[in-house]
Simulated assay, not measured.
Amino acid sequence: MERMLADLHTHTTASDGTNEPSGNIRLAKEAGLGAVAITDHDTVAGIPEALEAGRKLGVTVVPGVEISTVANGQDIHILGYYMNIEDSAFLQRLEELRRTRDRRNALIIDRLSELGMSVSLQEVIDAANKNGAGETIGRPHIAAVLIAKGYVRTMREAFDRYLGKSGKAYANPPRIHPAEAVGWIHEAGGTAVVAHPGLYGDDLLIGQLIEQGIDGIEAFHSDHAPEDELRYSELCRRHRLLITAGSDFHGEKDGAVFHGSIGARTVDMQVLRDLSKRR
């Protein structure tokens, strides 16, 4: 029997991806995947469309989210799976996070202005082309304006010079701690997984999150080196945590796929059973 695979980390136009949710499902079908997760930043707005597309195309859609948190002065992302996406308390909490994201966008725009770059919030909103409730606007949309105005040439340059954590316009207002996000996901009936830990350079924090009840680790990610994948896989086995994998697909930007194509990192679909039953 053919082994069926799942990509558990993709983004859509509900946050900072370039494809509609149904587009991600179509790409998953074309890649021969059995399942794909929709994990937009601080929103579940894209999931209903994805579920409908999945029913039509015969692809299992895993309802997910990627929650923005801060620890030790840097962004830490927590993936949630199989939450009740109609849970009112959970939806209210996500809305609060989106308001924090809006404040962050305003701070970045102010800092860009101080650097002599004219970027307005309305221009960013127009670049994001949002048309649905609960959708998010993030740094890639600011980068798109910087590119359009000729301040930078590529998305990568925008983040390296201005928007990334070492960039001149970087801003990071107070957010919840990752352990709090884990609690939110659990309270909504979901399973919580640390996203791309190899990007943080803080394995002490990962150890603390294990003690605080994390269910799994995204060991396989498009930006992980082989040694990262081995280290986090072994850490999961040692602590009996779920091992997940995801491309972190955001669509095509500047003529290149960002971070990886759908299906670039996958796990066996049996992990879905474990994710859905973990709680």
Rank of each mutant, 00 (worst) to 15 (best):
V59E: 02
I25T: 03
A192I: 10
G251D: 02
H186M: 00
V70F: 10
R231E: 07
L204K: 15
K130Q: 07
G213N: 15
A245F: 08
V267Q: 05
G116E: 05
A169Q: 03
H250R: 15
R3Y: 15
T39E: 06
I185L: 00
E95W: 13
E86R: 05
K56C: 05
M4D: 07
H196Q: 15
V124R: 02
E252W: 11
E95Y: 12
A143L: 04
D268Y: 15
D202G: 12
S233D: 15
L205N: 09
G116N: 13
A245H: 06
E123F: 01
H239L: 02
D215P: 06
A148M: 03
N72F: 15
P21C: 07
L115K: 14
G17V: 00
T13Y: 04
G189K: 01
L204W: 08
E52Y: 08
F90Q: 00
E86N: 09
F159Y: 11
H250G: 01
T12S: 14
R55F: 08
P178V: 01
I125E: 05
A37M: 03
E211H: 13
D215S: 12
R175H: 10
G46E: 06
S233Q: 15
V152A: 07
T43M: 02
E252M: 14
L275D: 11
N129F: 03
R279T: 06
S120R: 06
L205T: 04
D160H: 12
V44S: 01
S88I: 03
H224R: 03
G260N: 12
L242R: 12
R55A: 10
G73A: 14
L235G: 12
L8N: 02
A128F: 01
D7I: 13
H77T: 00
T60V: 10
V124H: 02
H221S: 10
G17W: 00
V44I: 07
G58I: 13
V193Y: 04
L79N: 11
D7V: 11
V65Q: 00
G198L: 00
L204D: 11
A219N: 15
H250Y: 11
